[in-house]
Amino acid sequence: MKAKRLALLGLLTTIALIIFVVELRIPNIAPVPGMKLGLANIVTVYAVYHCTAKETALILFTRIILGSLFGGNMLALLYSLGGGIMCLLGMLLLRKVIDEKHIWVCSVLGAVLHNIGQIIVAAAVMQTAAVITYLPFLLVSGCVAGLLTGLCAQLLTSRINLNDF
């Protein structure tokens, strides 16, 4: 990997981390575990369309692991990883069938997959299907949040071209 490219990926990861840490400061209003805006995914969605699969995975997992360390909540790491893996695999496949003008759709479906991944991990850890009751609430908020982050990523796409750097 070229040094320039590495620096660029480091920059994207840092931006994602900053957004993540800032979002930690926003109190969770809903009593539903795992419900959040996930603004750091603006970077993930952007990377899906501008970086290789390997690079996107690097950015995402570095952010998730460091984010859990900074947030001091290692218990949340497992859920973030479960959701993150589902979301990443899904969006990398969707990238092949959804063009750049419809990044927001890819983002919404990525959020849906993220929620499903979270619930699968929660059900496995807790040994109960009771957590599935939370899924529809996570899905509704996830779709809205995914739309928001997707539109942000789309806005960036039309303005920033990584090849310019």
Partner: peptide, 17 residues
């Protein structure tokens, strides 16, 4: 690439949820 199909998929998931 057929974005329309995926928009419908997303909308169906949202309404179902």
């Amino acid at each position: 690439k057929n974005a329309k199909l995926w928009i419908i998929v997303a909308a169906v998931i949202f309404i179902a949820a």
